[in-house]
Design a protein around this nucleic acid. Structure first.
Lengths: 221, 221
DNA sequence: GATACCAGTTTGGTATCCCAAAATGGTATC
DNA sequence: GATACCATTTTGGGATACCAAACTGGTATC
């Protein structure tokens, strides 16, 4: 694999994994040394991560994008639009076999599953569901939105109750989709996204002080 | 302005203006010479234009993205989702003054207006309308979608009737929006987008042979 | 003590160089 | 005439050198 893709992937993982905190300054030379690549692939990686919203420009330099509560709310609205549109398309399709794959994904999680895995499956559920629509643009929109939400969701303090509720909601959405009930599926998905957003933003707003103390820049709504 | 932004802007204009045809091969060295910049800013520009969908990779090299009829259809579905969502948000807002600005934009076109201007205003109508929603992500989605559609719309053979119809539909959408009638506005916008897509794809499919003869790669649906 | 200022350092932007892989074009062979 | 093969050129990926602007830290001045 090319260095550029290598740097991009590793840097993305460090950012999403919060190994580099939201709001931290980045220098091309530091990244260069960190991954043993020269500035050319580093710059390419930064340019792509910029379009993903994971890094941004701060004057002349680079910064890991802070967690922005106002942005999280806007993303939720955006997600709702594209995910619901994708889901309605999927409901109209005759072929429902692909839903089983997503169902199996949910099945793979139980009480013994690591928290990190729950986190990943929770995102992939939405991404894979959007992929079923067959519309590349709706799919990419959902994938990109989930990427932007990823760090925030990871910071969210979620109790078992919340995880279980989300899991049940995912099940219900799949069930309605399988039956081709577009309106019902859309209603469930909308409610799920709005509920998730509320819990997420509330949780982060409450923990804001603590998060900042950990060095994580959290911008208020 | 930096060279990178310069190269990016000029190259984008050449691609959107069809000075470089869809499907044409690009070499970094040719661009370098064309704009008097070195490869570093050229490569940065290509990376950004790639995310806009204007250029793509063809093996190891670069290609101006062909017109892809299947893609145009998918974009229309995507547009419908995000534009309708944005419009519904706008309808809910109390402040309607910003609509006047868009209305004035439409007013600025009459029978003496250049075709190129009609083209631009037609796109800006949708972009500016989405901006009113206040949701940055819906706005960017619409803007990016219109960018991707831009070349195809420019190639479309549109008679005066079609231009006039689109103009009337834009007016009707604005009127419903001003009244805050979300459902009606959404219905009108959906119909407008679907109608535009049908005419666009039909027109290009019919002209496909001619377009290819002009050196424009047009991929069938 | 606060502030204005200056030398030294850091950093992103750009140009250029090198390389391996891929494309090219000509040639020999069948 | 078609094709397989090889030398040459081209091209994108990467590394590095250079520069101007921004930043830093310390110092002199008030």
């Amino acid at each position: 694999m090319s260095q550029m893709q290598n740097v991009e992937r590793q840097l993305r993982e460090m950012i999403l994994g919060l190994e580099i905190g939201p709001g931290e300054k980045l220098t091309e030379r530091w990244i260069e040394g960190q991954f043993g690549a020269s500035r050319t692939p580093v710059r390419a990686a930064l340019l792509r991560l910029e379009t993903e919203g994971l890094v941004g420009r701060d004057g002349r330099g680079w910064t890991v994008s802070p967690i922005n509560l106002a942005e999280l709310e806007q993303i939720a609205v955006y997600r709702e639009a594209v995910e619901v549109a994708a889901l309605r398309l999927t409901c109209k399709q005759a072929e429902k076999g692909a839903i089983d794959v997503i169902e199996a994904m949910l099945d793979s999680c139980d009480e013994n599953t690591a928290r990190e895995e729950w986190h990943r499956v929770g995102m992939d559920f939405h991404i894979e569901l959007a992929r079923l629509s067959g519309n590349e643009f709706l799919f990419r929109a959902v994938r990109d939105a989930m990427t932007r939400l990823s760090r925030a969701r990871w910071l969210e303090v979620r109790d078992e109750t919340a995880l279980g509720r989300a899991w049940l909601e995912h099940r219900a959405i799949l069930a309605a989709t399988r039956l081709g009930e577009g309106d019902e599926a859309a209603r469930l998905l909308s409610a799920h996204i709005v509920g998730s957003r509320d819990r997420l933003v509330t949780s982060l707003a409450n923990d804001r002080r603590g998060l900042r103390a950990r060095g994580f820049a959290v911008v208020a709504a």
